[in-house]
Every structure is written in structure tokens, then in C-alpha cells.
Amino acid sequence: MKSNFLSLLGVLCVAAVGALVADAFTTLALFVVLTPLTLLVTGYLGLNMAMLSDGYPKSKVSFAAIYTAMFGPTLGTLAINIGAMFLAHAMTGPTFWVPLAAAAANALFTVGITSLAGVAVEAFR
């Protein structure tokens, strides 16, 4: 009876360790795939935000908004992903959702900063 209990305990320990390793691998793989992808997308969008300067705005607020729209999404994405990596490292339990949440936060940040910059450029042109 004792050997059956120990073997069951051994199987459960191996399953628990396997689940932790699988979660760590999934988290790492998602960071490896999503971080460069989001940086490429936000960099491309930042380059397209240079078109906000068409018509040569004369206001300093417009210039600041244009530069914010060009460089803000990429720098914000980098900061969000680094913060998410530190968060995933410090967490206990499942962490596979952290890179997915970081990608969603990147999307929201990029849409927000470029929208505000576009409104500021048009308002203060």
C-alpha cells in the first residue's frame, strides 16, 4: 500500500513539474514571438505617423504631437514588454497570459497615443 502511495505521489510531482515547465516554455515562446512582432508593427505605424506633418504645421504643439506619434508607440511597446517580462518572472503560478496581456496593452497604448497625437495635430495646426 505504501509503495502505491509513493508511486502516485511521484507521478503527481512529475505532472506538476511538467506543467510548470510547459507554462514557462509557453510564456517564453509567446514573448519571443510577440515582442518582435509588436515592435515591428508599432515601428511601421510610427513611420506612417510622419504623414501627420503634411501641410507643414507651424505650431510647437503639432510638432511635439508628431514626434510623440512617431516614437511613442515603439518606446511604449518596449517599456510594456520589458515590464511584462519582469512581471512574468516575479509571478508564481501560470504566466502564459502575461505576454498576451502585454500585446493587448500594446495595441491599446498604440491606438490611444496615435489618436491623441492626430487630434492634437489637427487642433493646433
Rank of each mutant, 00 (worst) to 15 (best):
A64S: 15
F109V: 03
V17Q: 01
M51H: 10
F96V: 03
G93P: 02
G46D: 07
N81C: 12
A84F: 08
I80F: 08
M70S: 10
T74M: 15
G93M: 04
L108D: 04
I66M: 15
A107S: 10
V11I: 06
L8I: 04
M1F: 12
A16T: 00
N4Y: 14
L20R: 06
T92I: 08
L78Q: 07
P36V: 04
T68I: 13
G18E: 01
L6R: 13
S3A: 14
G43F: 09
M85N: 05
P99Y: 05
V11G: 01
V61C: 09
A102K: 03
P57L: 11
A102S: 06
T74D: 04
L9A: 10
Y44D: 06
K2L: 12
A65R: 14
A90P: 03
L34A: 02
A107W: 07
F25L: 08
I66K: 13
L20N: 01
L40K: 10
A102T: 01
P36N: 05
F5I: 15
I66A: 12
A123D: 15
A101L: 13
V17N: 00
M70Q: 15
A88L: 07
M91G: 02
A88F: 07
I66W: 12
G18L: 02
A22G: 01
F124A: 14
T110W: 06
V17G: 00
L45G: 12
T110K: 04
G118F: 05
F124E: 15
L45W: 09
V11L: 09
E122N: 14
M70P: 12
L108I: 13
G18Y: 01
I82E: 07
G76D: 09
I80N: 09
